[in-house]
Design a protein around this nucleic acid. Sequence first.
DNA 1: TTGAAAGCGCTAACAA
DNA 2: TTGTTAGCGCTTTCAA
Lengths: 279, 279
Amino acid sequence: MQAAEQLRYVKNINAVHLSLGKTKIIGVILPFFSHPYFGVILGGIASAAEKGGYKLMITQSNYQVSQEIEALDMLKRKQVDGVIIASRECPIDIVKDYSEYGKIILCEAPADSSLSSVFVDQYKAFQAALAFLKQKSRTRVGYTLLRPEGKSSLARKKAYQEQFSEAKSDWLFNNALTVEDGTRIAREWAEMRDRPDAMVITNDFVAAGFLLECRKLGFSVPEDVSIIGFDNHPIASALDITSVELPLHLLGETAFEQVISLDVSHLEVPFRLVDRNSV
Amino acid sequence: MQAAEQLRYVKNINAVHLSLGKTKIIGVILPFFSHPYFGVILGGIASAAEKGGYKLMITQSNYQVSQEIEALDMLKRKQVDGVIIASRECPIDIVKDYSEYGKIILCEAPADSSLSSVFVDQYKAFQAALAFLKQKSRTRVGYTLLRPEGKSSLARKKAYQEQFSEAKSDWLFNNALTVEDGTRIAREWAEMRDRPDAMVITNDFVAAGFLLECRKLGFSVPEDVSIIGFDNHPIASALDITSVELPLHLLGETAFEQVISLDVSHLEVPFRLVDRNSV
DNA sequence: TTGAAAGCGCTAACAA
DNA sequence: TTGTTAGCGCTTTCAA
């Protein structure tokens, strides 16, 4: 031990990994790093990982299937013990094929019973927003989505169509992720002859962009248009935007617990509508 | 090759790493994942890393020296080929001790000539903001910092003190990072008998919180108080906040180029004041 | 308790 | 060109 000390010996972790056959590293796949939505999830994963003595290998997928696959390949190569997919583009079947190499956690409603998942019920959350609007006598409601064919978008669409069967298709705005998307959509909204009197918006950043642009264009919120965002990011509070709070940090922590656990589970995490003054 | 195909052979990357003595993995140390400032830097690093076929191992330090050291230890253990420190709490001397084990890049003004760095000149950037305010006849200027003793804070303080030698110490607000910090500081500001007529604010999120809270309290921007933020995040555009743009994505890409390069360099990245309507 | 050695699965140098 | 084998630096089993 003394000799080790004097020679400033340190273990070569690669030899350890090779010998042990595992690494105590978890891979995390996120579409974007710079968006707080994913940043908060990642923070949740990271804080749980730290406690467990795990390290994180991250890949920014940009929703490119090739990137997602490359990340999943780390499982095959034994570079990571498991992977958490915060959001994906990759078909579920090919994800599932990787599960023989290690644990995979999906941050979405259960897509396959054999793959653990942690999620908020997008259908119910969207429904809650819609119901709230209805209660406030807003019936001409439009909404925004990020990827129109994404899983959570589909759930939101379903909730919407059940509530408004006769809905106009041009009251749906896609590719809504950032503040800029919000301002773009506000301009589109303002141009419409027949426009919604309420908008349920992907997340609080888009909602912020939307609200601010509406004001610049001379409209009032909620008089001319009601707004409900998602996530309950501090910016929503600052702008008095009613928002559906999603416990993203908890979701990240939970995903980590699942990835190091032996058994498969499907865990739902709660949402909560926080009412402010945009409806 | 056919046999390999049929047996679905895949390399064990740990054996490769052990044999090669390197991993094509870069460690990244960030204080927080959920803040867009660091998210954008990380995005820049990630996009460059992907092109180079490198993977990223990240650690969220929360500015805890112990976490930073743990991340640096990955260098010793040969888990990573190099590390990028986006921001640190750890003393430079101990960082330097690790440089014998691999390349270390600092995203800050050169702290040690032997350690590569990429940075925006915080002194000049702050000076530019101050000069702009002066030009607009704002002389009672306050400012916010994140960590009062951090490197960039020190540079900002210096620029401030050179401009306003007789400055009141209570026109400096610390721990400013998030939207909430901005609203908190706005309340403190509003309570002061003798308050600044302009604020140079850590970043656009804090600036957004500050501006919005000022309005809630019945003040007008820029009539009652001018505001300059940093980063030029889209939220600044949406709120018409004048901001000093920092090319964070580029900074991240550059840091990656440096970490895989053989030689040491100190690269400055430009800033740019984008004038809007908060001054 | 301490010591020796097999095995983890590759790369690279060396022979054939 | 193809085939062997000596590392790389650990963990773990088995002997002593």
